[in-house]
Design a protein around this nucleic acid. Structure first.
Lengths: 259, 259
DNA sequence: TTAAAATTGATTATGTATAATATTGCGGGC
DNA sequence: GCCCGCAATATTATACATAATCAATTTTAA
């Protein structure tokens, strides 16, 4: 088979050569990306035939994708009226982060006591080392790797498979958001503001001390920091003010005020 | 048109005469009910054509329903391999309750400060009255009504539409579970063990005192009590032991031990 | 005359049916 | 063990039937 990229508009190429049995997932990813990139106006109608044409697939996977997207709460599926995209702005992004904070904080509470001492020693040593190490490409790579490892380990060991499932469900949204950030020109590319390793260290030390609340609070701080970066990259500096958040939720944004 | 009910087997009648545009929802409800009633062995395969025949609908709504059910985490959708039902037992039921506790506790934290004094006075008076009133049919009716009102009001006012959305998503599971309970012969029908109104009163008083943690804890207790009743009705007295829960999660079952 | 209600027709969603294609899983042969 | 073919099933594509929505228009009623 020849790679005939270039013969079709960009939109179609995005979904070409996808494996059989994964069309729905691809369409979900595509629409999520577009949504998070602000390509849809709030309330816009998603017409099935239109999407099918754009994605170069038949309507069947499109309709299934819409059901899944409705499950994510990013579109509303009204009977006999089709799909309407829900608003997505700083406020909605903060709400996603809030949910993630709720879920992952509880997961870290649950995972206390589910690690071996050597696992904990290893993690503490790694994050301590990375938090003071010189910051270069390799450092960034290892930071990302250990970030993923820590979060998935906490989710796996939290003792509640459903909680773990919901965390992974939100990870789909979160990963798409991170990817969307890269396509924004405002995305920060320097390492100066990254204190991930310190935040992770606090989480691990909470687990080591068997102090559920300390670990949960550290996780909350960490998720907030990540959310903060995300909001600023996607919507700019004053996005937090624009979000017009509820005082309690907004308070959580800057944990010192909230607690 | 004639009503020709009776000409078809029971299973088909269940879904007959459903409105256009709501087939998927009906199928979701039917499969959830079956699952919670223990009609599917863990790991059982759900074949699309088979379900289509049973539900007397075509395969399209069936497949869409499976996508939605996969979103609920009650089945697993493997590419090219179809749907496999996830295990459902006391442990999984507790996990659902755990999630509900997480979500609704956070909602009640968020809703503090979003009620008018008169609303709060009214709610406190209602729950105080019902908690000491004679228990008859009317009492049960009003108790249920105010239960629904309180929970949906808290969800609406929590200040986070996504959190509200997730709570309502879980309410689908929860309502189906409550309905499934009625079909079990072990379901409790007396009013003696119902302290809902007292639990609700504690929640409302927490909100009145603007004490987020007190209100959240009261909500946690309340959801635990409801979960306890559900587990016992669906799986019997020693179901909690059978559930083989993680100590932290199990601890939450009996809040006094957990905190 | 004007406002409400019913009607019409275009558009789109939803559901059905069927066929084409791809994948899986199994069993037989090597 | 491995490979090949085959049946079962999932997935996708396509065409069509039905039903609902929406807007424009006509009709009806006050």
């Amino acid at each position: 088979m020849y790679n005939i990229a270039g013969r079709f508009p960009v939109l179609k190429v995005e979904l070409m050569n996808i494996n059989h049995g994964t069309r729905r997932q691809s369409v979900v990813g595509l629409i999520l990306t577009r949504l998070f990139n602000g390509e849809y106006a709030p309330g816009a109608r998603l017409r099935v035939e239109h999407l099918a044409e754009q994605c170069d697939v038949s309507v069947t996977p499109i309709r299934e994708a819409l059901v899944e997207l409705a499950g994510f709460g990013v579109i509303k599926l009204q009977p006999n009226r089709g799909a309407e995209v829900s608003p997505f702005g700083p406020k909605q992004l903060w709400e996603i982060c809030h949910l993630r904070r709720i879920l992952e904080s509880e997961a870290v509470r649950g995972c206390v006591g589910h690690f071996t001492p050597s696992e904990l020693e290893q993690m503490e040593a790694d994050f301590a080392r990375l938090s003071t190490a010189d910051r270069d490409e390799d450092w960034l790579e290892e930071t990302k790797l250990l970030d993923n490892q820590l979060h998935s380990l906490i989710s796996e060991r939290c003792g509640n498979k459903r909680l773990s499932y919901e965390i992974n469900r939100y990870a789909v949204l979160y990963r798409t958001l991170r990817d969307a950030r890269h396509s924004m020109r405002t995305a920060r590319s320097n390492y100066s503001e990254m204190d991930e390793n310190l935040e992770h260290l606090a989480i691990v030390r909470g687990i080591i001390k068997q102090d559920r609340e300390a670990a949960a609070e550290a996780m909350g701080d960490h998720v907030n920091q990540a959310g903060n970066a995300l909001v600023q990259d996607l919507f700019g500096k004053q996005a937090i003010a624009d979000a017009d958040l509820d005082p309690y939720v907004a308070g959580q944004v800057t944990p010192t005020e909230a607690l």
